[in-house]
Amino acid sequence: TEEYEYTDEQQAREAAREWREKGYTVTIEEHNGRWRVKTG
Rank of each mutant, 00 (worst) to 15 (best):
T1E: 13
T1A: 13
E2I: 14
E2S: 13
E2N: 14
Y4T: 08
Y4E: 07
Y4Q: 07
Y4V: 08
Y4P: 04
E5W: 15
E5P: 11
Y6D: 01
Y6C: 04
Y6N: 01
Y6F: 14
T7K: 10
T7G: 11
T7V: 11
D8K: 04
D8R: 04
D8Q: 06
E9M: 07
Q10E: 13
Q10M: 13
Q10S: 11
Q11I: 09
Q11M: 11
A12K: 00
A12L: 02
A12I: 01
R13G: 04
R13T: 08
R13A: 09
A15W: 03
A15N: 04
A15K: 11
A15L: 05
A16G: 06
A16V: 08
A16H: 03
R17T: 08
R17Q: 13
E18K: 14
W19M: 12
W19S: 04
W19R: 05
W19H: 05
R20E: 15
R20N: 08
E21T: 05
E21F: 03
K22G: 04
K22V: 04
K22I: 04
K22F: 04
G23N: 03
G23L: 02
G23Q: 02
Y24S: 03
Y24T: 03
Y24A: 04
T25W: 13
T25V: 13
T25A: 09
V26R: 00
V26L: 02
T27I: 13
T27H: 09
E29M: 09
E29A: 07
E29L: 09
E29N: 06
E30F: 15
E30K: 10
E30V: 10
H31Y: 11
N32P: 02
N32D: 12
N32S: 05
N32F: 05
N32G: 09
N32R: 04
G33H: 11
G33C: 04
G33R: 02
G33M: 03
G33L: 03
R34V: 09
R34E: 04
W35F: 07
W35D: 00
W35R: 00
R36G: 04
V37P: 01
V37R: 00
V37M: 03
K38N: 08
K38W: 04
K38L: 10
T39A: 11
T39Y: 10
T39S: 06
G40W: 13
G40R: 14
